[in-house]
């Protein structure tokens, strides 16, 4: 199979480590929320105050903004913008890229200093980069994770939900 088409499978142990890393980042910076996204906009993990209902849309938009800024970088003949900062009246967002594949996003208010966020985000991105490396190294077969009859069941569900 074309290696570009194989899925990224994030195992339980790696998810646990990601969640611990995000929780620590939120706690140490005093931020409101930390999100780890795939570059396609899918939320891998989210930690912070309360249960946000808009997390899926937030993931899609932040990944869109980042992908868009990557195109701006190309036009400026810059290799990549590794991080971006958006400043609001109440809330701020700091976004950092991890190995061209994942995006770490921290949402924080004026009680948190941007300098602290930058320093601790750098530490977190290093840790998450090593998690990503392990995720990339493991080669679990799809059937091992999903079961051999997954595709047939999925096709039945698709026919049932998407019918005229």
């Amino acid at each position: 199979m074309d290696p570009q088409l194989t899925s990224i499978i994030v195992p339980t142990e790696e998810i646990t480590q990601i969640e611990e890393c995000l929780s620590r980042l939120v706690e140490d910076t005093g931020s409101d929320y930390a999100l780890l996204l795939d570059k396609s906009g899918q939320v891998i993990s989210a930690k912070g105050d309360g249960d946000r209902q808009d997390i899926t849309a937030l993931g899609a938009l932040i990944a869109g903004v980042f992908a868009s800024s990557r195109e701006v970088a190309k036009l400026l003949r810059e290799r990549d913008f590794r991080a971006s900062f958006q400043q609001g009246v109440r809330e701020n967002i700091f976004i950092a890229l991890i190995e061209e594949q994942w995006i770490l996003c921290i949402i924080f208010n004026k009680g948190t200093h941007i300098g602290l966020v930058k320093v601790l985000t750098k530490k977190a991105t290093d840790e998450l980069a090593s998690v990503l490396e392990r995720v990339r190294q493991q080669h679990k077969a799809r059937d091992e994770v999903l079961g051999s009859s997954f595709r047939t069941s999925m096709e039945d569900t698709i026919d049932l939900l998407f019918r005229d």
Binding site: T16, I44, V145, L146
Partner: peptide
Amino acid sequence: MALINVARREI
């Protein structure tokens, strides 16, 4: 690239 989250059992 599809994402399979084994811990949360999400695709």
